[in-house]
Amino acid sequence: MTALFNFQSLLLVILLTICTSTYVHAIAPTFMNNHKQGFIGIFWKAARVGERLSPYISLCCVFMAVSMLIGS
């Protein structure tokens, strides 16, 4: 089953995309700043969300980790 059909997996993929994009943007900011349009622009936007909402993203990651522990 893909992550599109399972809501919890979809949220996990979105959170991992935001966290990974934010990390890559911190390491190589010129790469993402030069590619704001197109497919890579999605990752630039995810990096912006991760930078601006980092406390909320962190809380969501902790919540997802706890829910994964409880669910398994």
Rank of each mutant, 00 (worst) to 15 (best):
M1E: 04
M1G: 13
M1F: 13
T2D: 15
T2K: 10
A3H: 13
L4K: 09
F5G: 15
S9G: 04
L10E: 04
L11T: 05
L11P: 02
V13G: 03
L15P: 01
L16Y: 03
T17F: 05
T20G: 14
Y23I: 14
V24L: 15
A26P: 02
I27P: 02
I27R: 11
A28N: 14
A28W: 11
A28K: 12
T30E: 12
T30Q: 12
T30V: 11
F31P: 02
N33C: 06
N33M: 09
N33F: 01
N34V: 00
N34D: 15
H35D: 08
H35W: 09
H35K: 11
G41Y: 01
G41Q: 02
I42H: 07
W44F: 15
A46D: 05
R48N: 13
V49G: 02
G50W: 01
E51Y: 10
S54L: 05
Y56K: 08
Y56R: 08
I57F: 02
I57P: 00
S58F: 13
S58M: 08
L59F: 07
L59C: 05
C60W: 13
C60N: 10
C61N: 06
V62A: 15
V62Q: 06
V62G: 07
A65D: 01
S67E: 10
M68V: 01
L69R: 09
I70K: 04
I70N: 00
I70R: 05
S72M: 10
S72N: 12
